[in-house]
Nucleic acid binder design. Sequence first.
DNA 1: ATAAATAAAGATAACTTTGTCTTTATTTAT
DNA 2: ATAAATAAAGACAAAGTTATCTTTATTTAT
Lengths: 150, 150
Amino acid sequence: MFSKATEYALRATIYIAKQGTEEKKISIEEISKAIDSPQSFTAKILQLLTRDNKVVSSVRGPNGGFFLTEKAKNLPVRAILQAMEEDQLLEKCVLGLKLCSELQPCPMHAQYKTIKQQLIKLFVTKTIRQLADDTLEGAVFINNKKPRKK
Amino acid sequence: MFSKATEYALRATIYIAKQGTEEKKISIEEISKAIDSPQSFTAKILQLLTRDNKVVSSVRGPNGGFFLTEKAKNLPVRAILQAMEEDQLLEKCVLGLKLCSELQPCPMHAQYKTIKQQLIKLFVTKTIRQLADDTLEGAVFINNKKPRKK
DNA sequence: ATAAATAAAGATAACTTTGTCTTTATTTAT
DNA sequence: ATAAATAAAGACAAAGTTATCTTTATTTAT
Ligand code: FES
Ligand code: FES
């Protein structure tokens, strides 16, 4: 569905929200290890997410790293897609027509529409904080490593 | 959602199903004009769909072209995705984990799951014939040209 | 047989995405 | 002030996708 870059962006943001605060910032090394992603590429992606501190915040230097403000944690997950400029994917026509609309619908439109609406709703109503909290519970995962029994 | 190649594959197959029969085959030129796609690229894509005549059938030479057998028209739309080897996209984890499953779910899984099931159901239950028939009715479109009033 | 019309196959080019590496800027601790 | 630790920026490379062009094979009509 999403590009690799956006997948990493989602996982990285969730991890930072979960582990980091303004006081305890997370290094790119820790992030990429935790979410099982290529470090340099992930660094590039975080540069997009920190533009104007829109989603992720960062500080350079010793004890620097990435974190999310409390306010940012309340952003909808869609904000991550927007920062990655992959937001319009949710609106696209499945058959690749330039517009997905009632005006000139493709043959999949009528039935796809309701699915699309649910997708958009999911990304708009879910907040980054909610995803991070789920991860804290230990019930869900953001990497491919085998879960360890307690 | 899908690659350009798969988008063209879907539109081309629908057009061929709608316009073509074993007696009246459709040329690549007509297809690419009708669905508003690059001709040579579309030709390549049709080569994938005609492999073993799985979805589309073709004949070379004068009066040759592409068509769908009556049997092929009853295939689920998913067969097109399979021929394009983009079928697994429907099964993928939104966050890009290697597996999407209850065993090691990502934080989006619980809510995405039901959407995913609907998506899969749509592509499995819709047949190529159904899409082509909708297009014949004139109520839906498979290109970006302005609809003409009758 | 020959020519014409068509799709199939193959080579290649342009562009995008993914990924790495090096250098620079910033911040902190000493 | 200096050194160390960090992210930011930039240059590049590798791989994948999209697209075009040329040649070949097949079929039909004459
Ligand atoms: S027009 Fe194709 S999905 Fe809406
Ligand atoms: S595990 Fe991520 S969507 Fe199912």
